[in-house]
């Protein structure tokens, strides 16, 4: 697994893929989808697909690819080696969704939430397999949100393919388990070898699992909080853990699309809130009748300066 395409710019998302086995272009295939790193506040989320001919299912089962969550890191690495050695009939592809992409998507003006990102990524990966000529007949997916709704969505999107969405699909279907191993191995390696684009000197790499509940992760986030910038792009700013720490230990930042309390926000921006009209004295004598500034200036936010 060569991670260098992602590592050359870890602020954006990146697709990595194995060669497509010839046999997958001629025989009916099954495909599994799983993700790694959905919950952590640190690092990327990785989506993985694995596919092989339906006729090779038993062989895959015999190779004992179990749910990656029940394995430790070494076991996962070994199993990934096995998958890689079976490249004559197993193919895989990964989408590494950078933490910066997660932050900026979830915090976008028009919010793009993690479920939507997940669904779109899964669909893109299946489409990638189809575009590469893989003869897909069956797709197995570990659930994100309600299984039946997701299954419906995918079945409609890929007519002619038998889609099965199940909770814990990684422990039920070996091909999903294989996808899970690829995704988890990639995520582990990326997190371990994260190179910070920020100029932060020597960063302690002891950030634990990356889960907000991990004391090591918490300690790391306390240590590397910058009052103004908050965090390096390694951190998912959209996680409440990050938000809470920035709110309490960093300086406050206001955006024009913040959900601020109407009156407070208007006051800060020196505007009149809608509510002010109800309390204002009749006649509105509190406003000085100065001459109106021409729109040329207001549009450019130009003001004549009387005092610093």
């Amino acid at each position: 697994m060569d991670l260098s395409p992602f590592e050359s710019d870890n602020s954006v998302s990146c697709r990595l893929a194995s060669e497509i086995p010839d046999v997958c272009r001629t025989e009916d295939c099954c495909l599994g989808i799983d993700e790694a790193g959905r919950g952590p506040v640190l690092g990327p989320m990785v989506y993985g697909i694995c596919f092989c001919p339906v006729s090779k299912k038993q062989e895959l089962k015999d190779s004992k690819v179990a749910d990656s969550k029940t394995l430790n890191e070494v076991e996962r690495e070994n199993l990934f080696q096995k998958i890689d050695e079976s490249k004559s009939y197993i193919g895989w592809a990964l989408q590494i969704i950078s933490p910066n992409t997660i932050s900026t998507s979830m915090l976008q003006r028009t919010k793009y939430n993690l479920n939507a990102i997940s669904h779109d990524t899964a669909i893109d990966l299946v489409q990638y397999a189809l575009d590469s000529g893989v003869q897909l007949k069956e797709v197995f997916v570990d659930t994100v949100g309600p299984a039946d709704k997701y299954e419906d969505k995918l079945s409609k999107r890929f007519p002619g393919i038998d889609v099965t969405v199940r909770p814990k699909a990684d422990s039920l279907f070996p091909i999903v388990s294989a996808a899970s191993i690829c995704a988890k191995v990639a995520r582990d390696r990326v997190v371990k070898g994260w190179s910070f684009s920020e100029d932060m000197g020597d960063v302690e790499a002891d950030y634990g699992s990356g889960y907000p509940s991990d004391p090591k992760t918490k300690a790391w986030m306390l240590k590397y909080l910058d009052p103004v910038f908050g965090y390096p792009q390694f951190v998912r700013f959209s996680w409440s853990t990050a938000q809470t720490l920035m709110d309490s230990k960093g300086v406050t930042v206001h955006w024009d699309d913040d959900d601020e309390d109407g009156e407070k926000g208007a006051q800060r921006q020196n505007n009149k809130s809608m509510l002010a009209y109800f309390s204002a004295s009749a006649g509105g004598k509190d406003q000085k009748s100065t001459h109106q500034t021409h729109r040329f200036f207001t549009e450019r936010r130009l003001k004549s300066l009387e005092a610093l």
Binding site: E198, D226, V228, F229, P232, V251, T252, V253, H254
Partner: peptide, 12 residues
């Protein structure tokens, strides 16, 4: 930004 002072602009 409710801050008036130095910031690590080049580093971040």
């Amino acid at each position: 930004i409710e801050h008036n002072g130095p910031a690590q602009v080049s580093q971040y």
